[in-house]
């Protein structure tokens, strides 16, 4: 794959729920190292867009090329490609019946045949980075929301993904825990991870994103660098959105 090729290329993506159009013919290219923040009012289709990228939501039309493969093609084994697309959910979704260590190692061991010792040491290395190495043997319910979300990020990272998808990762957190999760995401961005982030954290978008996109009514109606996006918005709907949230 050459460097000029997009990592994810979304072509004419459509999604309907019971005849109601949620995504309306979206096309966008995401390149390696991009940190894309997707903003928009609630119900605009942000989460649906993100969940279509790894087909947790089945698109009703269009194509998504991931590393050159059309993952919407029925003959594509989506499970293989999902291993390279980490996902972080609003509700963390850690496995409550497994210890933190098991949460982190089960997928690499079962899906990538990584030996247990190797999976554990890599998990510990990442746990150290997020400051939770001492919690490896605890169960998720023993951790705070912010800690659980940091673990959820690490769980996705343990698969060594090429892109990370974040679906409102801080929306379910107490305000005082938002910072620690955003901190981990900032470090990820610094390490050149490709990220697509659906968020309401304007500060994060402004500071960390390389591209900010505004989704409304099922389509991206404005995209820009964070600076221009926030200081000089062009579209009227974006202007009114920003005036309400900033």
């Amino acid at each position: 794959m050459n460097d000029n090729m997009p990592l994810i290329s979304v072509k004419n993506l459509c999604k309907e729920f019971d005849g109601k159009r949620v995504l309306n013919d979206i096309s966008v290219d995401i390149y390696k190292g991009d940190v894309v923040c997707v903003l928009g009012p609630s119900g605009s289709g942000k989460s649906t867009f993100l969940r279509c990228l790894n087909r947790l939501e089945e698109p009703t039309g269009g194509h998504i090329l991931f590393e050159g493969t059309d993952i919407c093609d029925p003959s594509t084994n989506i499970n293989i490609h999902r291993q390279k697309m980490g996902m972080v959910f609003q509700q963390f979704n850690l496995f409550p019946h497994m210890t933190i260590m098991k949460n982190l190692t089960i997928a690499p061991m079962k899906l990538q045949n990584v030996p247990e010792s190797e999976a554990r040491s890599y998990a510990l290395e990442l746990l150290n980075k997020v400051g939770l190495a001492d919690r490896a043997d605890d169960y998720p319910s023993q951790l705070s929301g912010g800690q659980q979300q940091r673990i959820a990020i690490v769980r996705a990272l343990c698969m060594k993904p090429d892109v990370m998808l974040f679906d409102e990762p801080t929306s379910a957190l107490d305000p005082e825990m938002v910072g620690e999760v955003l901190g981990v995401m900032k470090n990820l961005a610094k390490d050149d991870m490709t990220m697509v982030v659906v968020t309401h954290e304007m500060g994060f978008a402004r500071e960390v994103a390389s591209r900010v996109m505004f989704l409304d009514g099922g389509d991206f109606i404005e995209e820009n660098t964070p600076d221009k996006f926030f200081t000089n918005p062009q579209n009227d709907r974006l202007k009114s959105f920003l005036s309400k949230v900033l």
Binding site: N54, R82, F89
Partner: peptide, 15 residues
Amino acid sequence: VPRGQLEAGRSLGFS
């Protein structure tokens, strides 16, 4: 079992 558990498993690449 919350639906998010199924989604989390699938998103990691489990069938």
